[in-house]
């Protein structure tokens, strides 16, 4: 006698096949590990080395951002921290917002804020002008 496989209907509509949640989960772990190193080294260099916290002023920042190394470092930190935080808040909103409308608007606000910070931050890192003050006494502006 022939047997047939019983058909059990899936009770839920599966969203389109996408690995987005997989990648965002992986990104959180990897960016977290990188950020621990980037941020701690950033704090150490800024606050412990040289004059320590007293050495942090406009000239200090200008000096750092004249080097492509620190530009890259800060850019990486900015992007990773911003995306890490945005993704974390996205999951929190998904967890806690009960109505679809609330979820939509909270996430729209979050993405907008995140884009503004990323664009503005990236712009500053690459267009930073240490001689913006015409009376500047910094050595690079002499």
């Amino acid at each position: 006698m022939a047997t047939s496989t019983p058909v059990i209907q899936a009770p839920r509509n599966l969203a389109s096949k996408s690995n987005f949640e997989l990648y965002s989960w992986l990104f959180m772990r990897l960016s977290g590990v990188l950020l621990v190193f980037l941020v701690l080294a950033h704090l150490f260099v800024n606050l412990m080395l040289g004059d320590g916290i007293d050495g942090v002023d406009f000239a200090f920042v200008a000096g750092k951002w004249s080097s492509p190394f620190w530009q890259t470092w800060d850019l990486l930190m900015l992007w990773l921290a911003q995306l890490h935080g945005t993704n974390g808040l996205r999951t929190i909103i998904n967890d806690y917002a009960e109505r679809d409308g609330t979820r939509f608007w909270l996430k729209s606000l979050l993405y907008l804020a995140s884009i503004v910070v990323i664009v503005l931050g990236t712009l500053v890192i690459f267009t930073f002008d240490p001689c913006i003050d015409p009376d500047s006494t910094l050595s690079v502006c002499q």
């Binding site: 899936a10 839920r12 599966l14 969203a15 096949k17 690995n19 949640e21 997989l22 998904n94 967890d95």
Partner: peptide, 14 residues
């Protein structure tokens, strides 16, 4: 695995 890769699948686990 594809079913559990859904938005409401394993990735929601905290």
């Amino acid at each position: 695995l594809e079913i559990l890769n859904d938005n409401e699948g394993v990735w929601r686990c905290r």
